[in-house]
């Protein structure tokens, strides 16, 4: 059985193709101006990797902000359910999924079947999202992918207290003028970011095991800080954390197919 999931978000789009219960191909692209375009581009690429065509796909669900506009999807599911589903399928012991994406942050609780039990989504502007990191990395003049590794080497992280990106920028600038090392500032940024995510996690509470999905999960500095702040260690994903939404969508497509065939 070949199934697929397609996740069209605000910054990136992902596709996952599964065959007989395992992932055979996946793809991540920057979003195009229109979600339909993003969806077909990313799916085309994944299909070509798998050496398949649309005809091979028996079921495909979509998720993400563009989920309702995907022509080849037979159903759509919220990204909240999908992240929960995908992560719990990969690591069956997972009960709490922290998804930190480009524009929002969600904390998702699931049961032993990967079914959504409870969730919370950030209300505040950029605080606690990938956008905050992007903004801060820019102020610091380094790439967003360097924030994590840079920060890890710091022994004296600077303190960035403000929740507001604008004031946080002022604080970062102050540190730069004061001649603080880039590593220390990067560490401060990662710490600030994890504090914001922690605040959200506390609203639904932590139930172990936990795992972190979404683009920000790739920032080792934030992950380490978050683990410390929550006093837990996050389960390591064996696939790219950005793919979890699309994976969840594929799994929902499989369930739908199974129900249909029953």
């Amino acid at each position: 059985m070949v199934i697929a999931g397609c996740d069209v978000g605000s910054l990136s789009a992902e596709a996952v193709i599964m065959k007989d219960g395992s992932i055979v191909a996946s793809e991540i692209i920057r979003v195009r101006p229109r979600p339909e375009q993003s969806a077909s581009d990313v799916m085309d690429a994944a299909l070509s990797k798998a050496g398949m065509t649309y005809k091979d796909i028996e079921g495909c669900f979509s998720t993400g902000y563009g989920r309702e506009k995907i022509p080849f999807a037979s159903g759509n599911i919220s990204e909240i359910s999908c992240h929960g589903k995908g992560a719990q399928w990969l690591i069956p012991s997972v009960r709490t999924v922290i998804d930190v994406g480009g524009q929002d942050c969600k904390v998702i609780k699931v049961d032993e079947n990967g079914k959504l039990v409870n969730f919370v989504m950030n209300d505040k502007c950029a605080a606690g999202t990938g956008r905050f990191l992007e903004f801060m990395a820019k102020v610091l003049g380094i790439g967003i992918e360097d924030l994590g590794p840079q920060g890890l080497s710091s022994e004296q992280p600077v303190s960035i207290t403000s929740f507001c990106s604008v004031y946080a920028e002022t604080e970062v600038l102050h540190s730069i003028y004061e001649g603080k090392a880039v590593a220390d500032i990067a560490a401060g940024i990662n710490h600030a970011m994890s504090e914001r995510v922690k605040a959200l996690v506390k609203r639904v509470g932590v139930e172990e095991d936990i795992c972190i999905t979404g683009g920000v999960a790739k920032n080792t500095g934030v992950v380490k800080n978050l683990e410390a702040a929550l006093q837990v260690s996050a389960q390591k994903l064996t696939v790219d954390p950005q793919l979890i939404g699309a994976l969840g969508a594929a799994l929902f497509a499989r369930e739908a197919l199974a129900n249909q065939n029953r």
């Binding site: 207290t161 929740f163 002022t170 604080e171």
Partner: peptide, 12 residues
């Protein structure tokens, strides 16, 4: 709550 607008910004 110093995390909204930090003291340094207020002084400025």
């Amino acid at each position: 709550d110093k995390r909204i607008t930090p003291g340094s910004v207020i002084k400025e």
